[in-house]
């Protein structure tokens, strides 16, 4: 491997950017292709497919054998609301490999005692997300069912294209939420991306059980997703 390729790949990983290392298995030459870079011909098509699926593998192109190693950022979970469900969900999600952040401006809820070992921020989501923006590789889980707290991060997650957006609340609560998001200018189709009622239907009752159903739904979204491939004329959508 070319040392420059290694350095660029690690830099892309630190910046949470998706990239593919393309190695020509005939002569060992390699290079890095970022999501959105244009590569012509058969090889370009294969790279696009690999990025979309997130799967590494061998590709035959132009009569040569290439290995395409896809590197996508580790998934993050941002939980809005330091509530009882979050106390179970945060450690479970960490165990499943997610980088977890809990955000809640209500300092009575967001206490270090209630969230030991968690990355907890006692501040308004609009302030926190300014410094730590959401991205495609993030799951947004909103569980306060308080519009003052949940709505901003939900809108932001839908606009960013987070791979999962879920919101807690009864059908009635969600109905009112849909109306507010429409007024905020979001299309019905976009709003339809919100998982509500949140979680897989396993009859979960306790906070820990609801956390399991939410985590299972997030993992389903993560493992069955299509990665966005940036088009040259679409701009910075990824």
């Amino acid at each position: 491997m070319d040392p420059h390729v290694l350095k660029s790949l690690n830099a892309a990983k630190r910046a949470r950017e998706a990239a593919v290392i393309v190695t020509d298995l005939n002569d060992g030459r390699d290079r890095m292709v970022r999501a959105g870079d244009h590569v012509a011909g058969e090889l370009g098509e294969a790279i696009g497919k690999a990025l979309k699926s997130g799967k590494s593998g061998i590709a035959e192109a132009e009569g040569r054998e290439f290995f395409l190693n896809v590197h996508v950022p580790p998934a993050r979970m941002v939980i809005i609301g330091a509530v009882h469900i979050s106390q179970a969900l945060a450690p479970m999600a960490r165990m499943a490999g997610f980088d977890v952040t809990v955000i809640d401006p209500r300092t009575a809820f967001a206490t270090p005692e209630r969230f030991e070992d968690s990355d907890l921020v006692a501040d308004w989501p609009e302030d926190v997300l300014k410094d730590r923006p959401l991205d495609y590789f993030t799951a947004l889980v909103a569980v306060t069912h308080d519009p003052k707290i949940d709505d901003y991060p939900l809108i932001s997650a839908l606009k960013t294209g987070c791979f999962y957006v879920g919101a807690l609340g009864s059908r009635k609560t969600h109905g009112r939420r849909v109306e507010r998001l429409k007024e905020a200018g979001l299309s019905e189709q976009t709003i339809g991306r919100i998982a509500a009622p949140i979680g897989l239907p396993i009859g979960a009752a306790s906070p820990a059980e609801i956390a399991v159903s939410v985590l299972a739904q997030v993992i389903e979204a993560l493992r069955t997703r299509d990665l966005p491939v940036r088009d040259a004329d679409e701009g910075a959508a990824a």
Partner: peptide, 12 residues
């Protein structure tokens, strides 16, 4: 942070 820990385990 967790991402720094992941950094340390990443062979590359």
């Amino acid at each position: 942070s967790l991402s720094e820990q992941a950094d340390i385990r990443d062979p590359l």
